[in-house]
Design a protein around this nucleic acid. Structure first.
Lengths: 337, 337
DNA sequence: TGTTTTTGTTAAAACCTTTTAGCAACTAAA
DNA sequence: TTTAGTTGCTAAAAGGTTTTAACAAAAACA
C-alpha cells in the first residue's frame, strides 16, 4: 500500500481499494446513509488496514466544527490554572477535541493576537481564565458567536462561569478549627484585590463573629512571616488558631511560629488554602488545608464548553464547586475531633 | 456590511465589495502574482474595513501547512516544562503559529490518542518533552513525516534536541563554591534515573576530585532533611559547602542546617539548582542557585521547530544551552568573592 | 503596421471531506 | 403488468482558500 504523494492516505484511497465510490466509503465509515452491512465492513477493514484517518481540516471546513477549543490564560501558567487545564484536557481528549493553549502574560496586545488566531482556526469555543480580579476579560469575548466559559474569572452577567466555592472552603477551614475548640481565630490572607480573598474573608468573619480579624497582604511566604512578626510585637491576647489564605502564607506563618518555639497545633493551630502539595506536604507539621478540586473544576468547565459547542444549553451564571478539607497535622489529628 | 450566513466574511465578500475576482483579491492580500498597486490597496482597505480574516482551515487544507504545532508533555505540567512551554508559545505566536497542548500523564494510551489527534490536524511539527530518563519517547515519533524536536528528552541519534547544559550549570555552582574557598563540598541530589542528575553529579565529581561525595535520593525537600540527618549522624569531617540538585532539596537542607544552628553561609554554604523563585526566594537566607533559562530553552525549541517545518535544515544533535548562576545569600555575598 | 512582451485580471482546478439528490435495481403491493 | 416503495450505491456540490493556466489589453519592439 504505497503512499500517494503528500503522505497520508485519503478517503479516496480507501474507496479505490474497496472498489466503491467516495461517498459510499464516507457513509460506511461514519455509519450515515444507507450501506450494505457487507460493504460497510469491507470499507472499514480496509481503512483500518491502510491506517486511514480523516483530515480534520477538511472535515472541519465542511462541518463548521473544528473539534478544537482554545484556552486563554492570563497568568503565565500559574499553579491554579494548570491543574485546571489538565482537567479540561482530560475531558476534551475523550471527545476527540484538542486544546489550544494561549498564554497572554497579562498583555492585551498578546491576548488580542491569540484570540484572533483562535477565531481564524474556527475553534468551537473558548475557555477564559484569570485569577486577578482587577483585570477585565477582553470585551471582544462577549461579542463572539462561539461559546465562552469563564473559570476563576467574572464573565458578563448571563455567561457561564465556574469558580471554587471560596466561601464554603473558608467555612470548612474555620469550622474545623472551631470544632477543635479554638475560638480566637486570626485570618492572614493575600491581596485584597483578589475577589477570592474577599469572599473567603467574609465567610470567615461571618463564622467567627466580632473577634474576627483579617490581615490582608500578598500571597507570599514572606508575608506570612511578616504577619506573625506584627502579631507578636503587639500586646493583647494571641490567637489560638490561624486560617491562612494560601499554603504559601501558611508556610511562612508556621516557620515564624516555630522560630518562636510555639507548638503547632497545640498552642496555635494552622490551616491553609490550596493544597499545593509541594508546600502543604512539606511544612512541619504537614499542613491541614483546603483543596479547591481544581481538576474537577476543569472537568466541569470542559464539559460545559463541550455541551455549549454542540448547541446544548447550559445553565448560565456562576457555578461554585465545593472544596474539600485535607486534614494533616497542623490542626488537630485526623482521628481526634 | 451584513453577515452572510455562517458569520465570518469570506474572501468572496472582499472580492465582491472590491469589484474584483476572488483570485485577484487573494493575490492582492498575499502580495502574490501580479496586481496593480491601486487595486491592491483597495482590496486591502476593504478587507480591513469588513474585518476579513482568512479561514485557517481552508488555507491549511490547500497549502498543507496548518500553522499549528503540537506539544506532547508527559509530566502533568511540571514546573520545568511550563516556563519552557511559555517560551515556545512566545516565539510561535509571533509567527502566527498556534500551540496544541497535550498532557499525556505518562499514559501511553493517552499519548497515542493525542498524537493521532495532532496528526489528524495536520500539525506542522511536534515538540516532545519528558524529564524522566526511564521513559522512552513513543517510538511512533521517529517515523513521522513531520519534524519533531525533543526538549529535556533524548530523541533518536540524528534528531534535534535541546537541553539545559547540566554539566556547565554544575560547574558554575561548584566553581562558585570553590572560588569562595570551600573545598569539602558535598552533593545532595535527586533520583539517579534522571539523566540530568547523573550529568550534574559527574561534572561535580570532576571538579571536586577525590573528596567528592554524591548522595542520590529523590527530588523532595524531605530528602534534603534526611540527607543532612545522615551526614550529621555519622562521624568524620563535615562539609564546608553543599551543592544541591534542586531548590527543593536545598530548602530541606537549609532548614535542617538551621535546626542545628549551623550558620549559612558562614559554616556551610549552600547552592541550589532550578531557580524556582517560589522556593529560592523564600529560603532563609535566600538561595544562590543555578538558573536553567527555561524560557530561552523554549525560544530555541520554538525557533527550531518553526524552521524545520518550513523545510529549513537545523543542525541535528543535542544542543545544550548555558545555565546562569543567580547569586543570593546562601553562598557568599554578591560583592564578596 | 505587425510581432513580441509585459501587465492586470480571471476562470477553474485543487485540497479532502460530508451531504444532497438522484439513479438503477429489486421487492412488495395493486 | 403496472405502481409504489425500498435498498444500495454514486455523481456532484459545497466549504474557503491558493495557485495555475489562460486571456485580453496595453506597451514595447521591429
Amino acid at each position: 500500500m504505497k503512499d500517494s504523494g503528500s503522505g497520508r492516505h485519503t478517503i479516496r484511497d480507501v474507496a479505490k481499494a474497496a472498489g466503491v465510490s467516495i461517498s459510499t466509503a464516507s457513509n460506511a465509515l461514519n455509519g450515515t446513509g444507507r450501506t450494505n452491512a457487507e460493504t460497510r465492513e469491507k470499507v472499514r477493514r480496509i481503512a483500518e488496514e491502510i491506517g486511514f484517518r480523516p483530515n480534520a481540516l477538511a472535515r472541519g471546513l465542511l462541518t463548521k466544527r473544528s473539534h478544537a477549543i482554545g484556552m486563554l490564560t492570563n497568568d503565565t501558567y500559574g499553579r491554579l490554572t494548570l491543574p485546571m487545564a489538565s482537567g479540561v484536557s482530560e475531558v476534551l481528549v475523550d471527545h476527540g477535541v484538542s486544546l489550544f493553549l494561549c498564554a497572554t502574560n497579562n498583555d492585551p496586545r498578546l491576548a488580542k493576537l491569540h484570540l484572533e488566531a483562535l477565531l481564524d482556526r474556527q475553534v468551537d469555543g473558548i475557555i477564559f481564565t484569570a485569577t486577578r480580579i482587577d483585570l477585565e476579560p477582553p470585551p471582544e469575548l462577549t461579542r463572539l458567536r462561539i461559546p465562552v466559559v469563564y473559570v476563576f474569572a467574572q464573565g458578563p452577567s448571563h455567561s457561564v462561569s465556574f469558580h471554587p466555592d471560596d466561601a464554603q472552603g473558608a467555612r470548612l477551614a474555620v469550622g474545623h478549627l472551631q470544632h477543635l475548640g479554638r475560638s480566637r481565630i486570626l485570618h492572614i490572607t493575600g491581596e485584597q484585590n483578589y475577589r477570592a480573598a474577599c469572599i473567603r474573608a467574609e465567610a470567615y468573619q461571618e463564622l467567627v463573629g466580632p473577634t474576627a480579624e483579617v490581615m490582608f497582604g500578598d500571597w507570599s511566604e514572606e508575608w506570612g512571616h511578616a504577619a506573625i512578626e506584627t502579631v507578636f510585637s503587639r500586646s493583647g491576647p494571641k490567637p489560638e488558631a490561624i486560617f491562612c489564605g494560601s499554603d504559601e502564607i501558611a508556610r511562612g506563618v508556621i516557620d515564624a511560629l516555630r522560630d518562636r518555639n510555639i507548638s503547632i497545633p497545640d498552642d496555635i493551630a494552622v490551616v491553609g488554602f490550596d493544597n499545593w502539595e509541594v508546600v502543604s506536604r512539606q511544612t512541619r507539621p504537614p499542613l491541614t488545608t483546603v483543596d479547591m478540586e481544581l481538576k474537577e473544576l476543569g472537568h466541569r468547565a470542559g464539559l460545559a464548553i463541550l455541551g455549549l459547542s454542540k448547541g446544548e444549553t447550559v445553565q448560565p451564571g456562576v457555578e461554585r464547586l465545593p472544596c474539600t478539607l485535607v486534614v494533616r497535622r497542623s490542626a488537630g489529628q485526623p482521628g481526634q475531633s
